[in-house]
Amino acid sequence: MEKIAVKVDDLTVAYNYKPVLWDIDLQIPEGVLMAIVGPNGAGKSTLIKAILGILKPIAGSVTIFGKPYATQRKHVAYVPQKGSVDWDFPTTALDVVMMGTYGSLGWIKRPGPNEKKRALEALEKVGMLSFKSRQISQLSGGQQQRIFLARALVQDASIYFMDEPFQGVDATTEVAIINILKELRKANKTVVVVHHDLQTVPEYFDWVTFLNVKKIATGPVKDTFNDDNLTKTYGINYKVSIQK
């Protein structure tokens, strides 16, 4: 069996009284491209945030390559939802991507020419090099998403968590994201993506997790992505025939 990149045990998260995630056990093997799917309010984003320590779980533990997450931050990169920040913030595209280097710099130390070089390379990878000096509010939604992606790429991590990167993006950006995903898989990186569009799951991903407060199923797309699990997750009788 492959190495386990992320292991989640008994994870339970609640806002106020109602549990948002209940007793999640999840193992994500190294090198997979995993989609997390489920209806609105299923706790998909919450799962990622709890794994990353942004939300404090009520119970449960998360290990990255067998060690506690807090000691493994350098191996993990995060692409938050595009709408989670104010894009009218006074800064440029390059500057946002540079933020990806802050973690490896640590406290107080300023980014230098080396960090700038890495940021420019990441911008080129997502096809945004010519926008490097653009004020971020002047970018389209898809371009903003690619900036976020570039910022995560700069971290040069082993595991990438992406929260709905395909949400409301144009065709160019969708292609750019897919190419990045493929490249990451080639480099044996682990990528976990909160995903909404069920139709594209078999095309883009090789591993899938069904989530609706509880974990419904997880495994390779070819074994797991079926009408049975879809129905269990979404509650309605799912009769989409999925091409495999």
Partner: peptide, 10 residues
Amino acid sequence: FDQDYAQTLG
């Protein structure tokens, strides 16, 4: 700019 992200960077 992005408090959650800052937190994941440690």
